[in-house]
Write a protein that binds this DNA or RNA. Sequence first.
DNA 1: GTCTATATCCTGATAGAC
DNA 2: GTCTATCAGGATATAGAC
Lengths: 218, 218
Amino acid sequence: MSTKQRIIEAAEHLFAEGGIAATSLRHITSRAGVNLAAVNYHFGSRDALIEAVYARRLQPLNMERLRRLDELEATGRPISLEDLIRAFIEPVLRISRDQELGGPLFIRMLGQSYTETSSRFERFFTGQYREVLERFALALGGALPALPREELYWRLHFMIGATAYTIADSQLLRLIAGSERPEDVELTLARLVPFLIAGFQAPVADCMPTATPRSAAF
Amino acid sequence: MSTKQRIIEAAEHLFAEGGIAATSLRHITSRAGVNLAAVNYHFGSRDALIEAVYARRLQPLNMERLRRLDELEATGRPISLEDLIRAFIEPVLRISRDQELGGPLFIRMLGQSYTETSSRFERFFTGQYREVLERFALALGGALPALPREELYWRLHFMIGATAYTIADSQLLRLIAGSERPEDVELTLARLVPFLIAGFQAPVADCMPTATPRSAAF
DNA sequence: GTCTATATCCTGATAGAC
DNA sequence: GTCTATCAGGATATAGAC
């Protein structure tokens, strides 16, 4: 494995174990078995390394979501709410539960992208998510034609929150208990999907002022 | 104001602005206008200061939730799902939107309690939340007698996630845009409560294996 | 209780030999 | 590309005068 790869790999594990802020370049290079100076040689800075670690997981995740959405749209038939929810949620659940694919880091990214010093990485994240959020919002609008656009954004938002929290928490559980239960993606989906379907289909409260939440990422 | 109080106050603001990990004791004492050594004198360590900052917001929040639950139970009548959801959510929404009460810090606590180095503060948080979670789970069970206990825990979990995320995101929005909209607690409730009611009342998927998510805090 | 001064250690980054 | 050595600075914590 190349030095660059070894650094990314080591960084991901250490970020997952101890958090990004608590992980120094010295920890990373020592674990990777490479020289301290190699980080700056290969990435330019610590922040650039962090982005590289994030991107390695985010890009395949969002490509998989778009692929599944393409697949649904390619049928030409109207797409059900449930299919859209699953297309959005299943890929992230699957990755988050997969040690090989960097699940543990993934949930830390979630929290830390909101936690980091007034969002040093905000532009980076916005770029990673824009297309996915736009396309899913549009498709959800098609599946829920009676739902006002604003309400739809809020509910998309609630869905992301419920899912993110579930992932974060279960992941913590695994880290702490060390229990391996790769099969529980299906269990989680069976709990979460009906909850979300019902939420999306809830009646809309009347006399609603106008405001949209910031479209957010995970 | 006492030195101790000044330190807590300054720490809260700096944690909210730059994150806990990025805030040093030097930042805090300099902003508080006190001596560096005062932190260790009054709190013993940096971590103990962090807990003190958290506790100042968490204790009133959870007491308010319990107070509202007491109030509902004191009527002797059956309690509606909506009342329970509001009793749990409204206090945290209100605090999170109130600059005076430390809203900005609050959302960081949310994220950072999951983000911090393998949960240095886990015992602390567990202690802060145990009673609230137990009592609300029990009351929700009363309002949804047909819902299996496990499913109820999952849905409580989803509620926390959707709410936490909404708070975190809106708070970020405010930090970034600088917009002040204290009135939008009502707006948020009007969006969130129907979503959650519907979610709690969703049909339960059949043939469900058994597993409970870790009860989690915010 | 509050201060100054300092011990001890770790940080990210870089210069320059190989 | 990889190494050693080092810079310049910041971290927490404490000893000891007042």
